[in-house]
Design a protein around this nucleic acid. Structure first.
Lengths: 110, 110
DNA sequence: GCTCAATATGTCCAATATGACATAATCCAG
DNA sequence: CTGGATTATGTCATATTGGACATATTGAGC
């Protein structure tokens, strides 16, 4: 179970630690993180689709390049709120967002 | 457009003000709020289905009754994060959450 | 390999969210 | 009615988040 998923989590700054503590991630937590990562990917995807640079998107959102970078990385310091707001601002519909969230479900199967 | 939806927003502490300022709610903002309200309803619905009291759910979540009440009311002070985390804790799947979010889409049609 | 644009990472402090508590309002069986 | 339980509302202090800035890393064209 560790390899693929664990790396994904670690790369997003979740300091997963050893296998034992990794296993302590409750399913809810894991699902939540997966959800955030899915939306993070959505932001990146949609931004690139619009041909925007992180800086451009940032100014569109009234934010900063670094925050956009963190959003796309699914950094611990970005909330679902910010991700969703951003997606809506880029023009994603609730339906699309729902699709991304749903997609997170299958990925979180251990 | 005002009546039904406006009241829903106002009842959730959004101080919508007069029609003009209400119209200034960008579609993104409106969609975001609708999303929160949809999830708020989801929490209530699921809690009752489980036969839990707000206090019971609160302790389950490591939170307080007042916060649960605010969640279900879609209060301005509760984040998407909290709503989603709570839903996951009550046992909702990502798919169900996605469904609620998607449902918010149609409701937000002016 | 150099340059420059794009992206990533780390750190501040201002703004917002959260749990807790007090207290009020509702509801409902008896 | 009344009392007890449930839910709503207001307010704090603490914790978390977010924009900004500095700086590092990466990547593409030359």
């Amino acid at each position: 179970m560790n390899s693929e998923k664990k790396k994904r989590l670690e790369n997003s700054g979740w300091t997963v630690g050893d296998a034992a503590s990794f296993l302590e991630l409750s399913t809810e937590e894991a699902q939540f993180i997966e959800m955030k990562l899915a939306l993070a990917a959505g932001v990146k995807q949609l931004r690139e689709k619009r041909g925007l640079t992180q800086t451009a998107l940032a100014s569109l959102l009234g934010s900063s390049q670094s925050r956009v970078a963190k959003m796309e990385a699914g950094d611990r310091s970005v909330s679902l709120d910010l991700l969703v707001r951003s997606l809506l601002s880029i023009g994603a519909s609730s339906g699309e967002i729902a699709k991304w969230i749903k997609r997170a479900e299958t990925r979180s199967a251990a």
